[in-house]
Design a binder for these strands. Structure first.
Lengths: 124, 124
DNA sequence: TTAGCTGCAAAGAGTTTGCTGGGAG
DNA sequence: CTCCCAGCAAACTCTTTGCAGCTAA
């Protein structure tokens, strides 16, 4: 089942993946259609097994539900650097308490220029 | 100049606006084209006068640069409730110090169900 | 047989772009 | 006269959907 292949790709990836990345990867060993990838991913999201996150580039990134990560994204080379420590949960709980809003998820994204691009002076 | 109309709409709005909202609003008094709205908004963003933020719904929201706000978005009624206090700047400074990444902006978005929808029990 | 996967092609939504005419300085 | 602004239509990108055939239980 292609669902398993997709799930495993996500499971073994250290970073979140786009539908296209998954499609390209799978294509090397399996016969797949992009629609199938999207459809499967949406199924997994609906089941709560994976997470979907739309970034500033308007592209949806998927990852296994439990590997909650935030990223620092370089506006020059577009690399996404994961940030482990998420102190937002504290803030979320505080907001929940103060407003009665039942917060179930959040997204956080930092933008700027990564050290490498700063050194290379390749900033546009 | 339509740029001024657009800028003022954003200036007088308590919340961030989408290109379409701006277009609809302007259309009542002025003759405009959606492309013009987009083009003007992108100009303003390039000049740093306004800010563009793509949310999970894949729609770009614009606001005046200095009114930095985050939102709690109800997944049921889709209303966006602004959150004033942004403690992310602290985190950003810390990350900058630890990683050398020059963070210039960030986005934060909370998702869940708002008090009103919880009470009404209209959750799907 | 019944239900759930697929592939394929077409549709959709939001946004961008090329080309052209117009108005401001 | 230049140059920037605006309108229009077409193009683009990522994603979704309808339809039909297949496959597994």
């Amino acid at each position: 089942m292609k669902k398993d292949i997709i799930f495993n790709l996500l499971k073994n990836s250290p970073k979140s993946l786009t539908a296209e990345e998954i499609y390209n990867d799978m294509s090397q060993t399996t016969d797949v259609n992009l629609s199938t990838v999207y459809r499967t991913l949406n199924n997994l999201v609906a089941k709560g097994e994976i997470t979907k996150n739309v970034r500033q580039d308007k592209i949806a990134y998927f990852e296994i539900g439990d590997q909650h990560k935030h990223y620092m994204i370089c506006d020059n080379c577009h690399t996404a650097f994961p940030t482990e420590n998420c102190e937002i949960d504290k803030l979320a709980r505080k907001l929940k308490r103060e407003t009665g809003f039942n917060i179930t998820s959040h997204t956080l994204e930092f933008h700027g220029i990564c050290p490498e691009c700063i050194n290379k002076g390749t900033n546009k």
